[in-house]
Design a protein around this nucleic acid. Structure first.
Length: 294
DNA sequence: GCACAGGGCCAAT
DNA sequence: ATTGGCCCTGTG
């Protein structure tokens, strides 16, 4: 890891909150102020002291920051305005936004998000991370740079690479009943039935419908893909955490159907509901809010 | 040690 | 429209 780039005067950028808010799975926490991240076929180390507006990125260059990381970290979006609007909704949102101060919505790779969120269903985040790591080690290729301690990391396998896997090989990566789902995704992408690059230009409803043609992709998984890869900020993926935190904060703990929760989010958060979802997810999960008591 | 739930979805009723 | 089952694993 040789080249180091320093970014200064970053507004609303906290690497810990960004990576730990459940939108990305290919990272490792090295210390409180240091993370390894695998993205864009690269391995970088990001260092940021808590509450600092400066960030050090190891193993990259200025031109890569301009060409890759600026877009990946959504540096052109003004999060000050977003955070201000959401904070003024009510006291709950004020707390959630303050807690998640520095969160940004990453612009990630559609294929990686597709497979990652197929795997995510009915799994806990550490387990999701482990499965994805297994897949990359089995079917990706080594990134030409170690982490400084001799550990090697792997690219996310392409549709072609992953498409060569048998169901047994996939199950050996601990993905369980999702193995046929992954195979179906590979097949539909490889045979051109799903053109991931075209989804950028479709309406949300059309893109959603396309993604849900893949086995194992339902409404929640499709919304995560569209939010985290295609930057459809007017989506509000509603998982168990979001469902419980919305019910807890806005419906007195009453059980509410997911459809109604989505409608509430649309009316209440408007076009900012993708951001609201991210703050609320991080807030609820980190603080274990509204977990059913045993 | 065992029951349970985890960034849900499918298939059968 | 509703519901049981699901691979696997960390947590209680």
């Amino acid at each position: 890891m040789k080249n180091v780039v320093m970014l200064q005067h970053l507004d609303h950028f906290a690497i810990g909150q960004i990576l730990e808010s459940g939108q990305v799975f290919r990272f490792e926490r090295v210390s409180e102020s240091s993370y390894l991240l695998i993205a864009k076929q690269r391995l970088i180390k990001i260092m940021q002291q808590p509450h600092s507006s400066s960030v050090l990125i190891h193993n990259t260059t200025i031109s890569e920051v301009d060409d890759l990381w600026s877009q990946y970290f959504d540096l052109d979006t003004n999060y000050h305005n977003i955070a201000t609007v959401l904070s003024h909704k009510d006291e709950h949102m004020k707390k959630a936004v303050a807690f998640g101060q520095g969160i940004r919505l990453l612009r990630q790779d559609p294929w990686e998000m597709l497979i990652s969120f197929i795997i995510s269903q009915n799994k806990a985040i550490p387990h999701i991370k482990a499965c994805i790591k297994n897949l990359t080690q089995q079917f990706g290729f080594p990134i030409n740079e170690a982490d400084g301690e001799g550990n090697y990391y792997f690219t996310f396998p392409t549709p072609k690479e992953l498409g060569r896997a048998t169901e047994e090989e996939l199950r050996a990566c601990k993905v369980g009943f999702r193995a046929p789902y992954i195979m179906d995704a590979c097949q539909k992408v490889l045979n051109g039935e799903i053109l991931l690059n075209d989804l950028y230009f479709l309406s949300i409803e059309e893109a959603r419908k396309k993604l849900m043609m893949i086995k194992g992709v339902g409404p929640k998984v499709a919304d995560c893909i569209l939010l985290f890869a295609y930057s459809k900020m007017e989506l509000f993926p509603t998982d168990v955490w979001i469902k419980r935190v919305i019910e807890g904060l806005y419906f007195g703990g009453k059980t509410i159907p997911i459809k109604e929760i989505q409608k509430f989010a649309e009316d209440y958060f408007g076009d900012l509901r993708g951001y609201a979802q991210q703050y609320l997810f991080y807030y609820a999960r980190e603080n274990a809010l509204f977990k059913p008591v045993k």
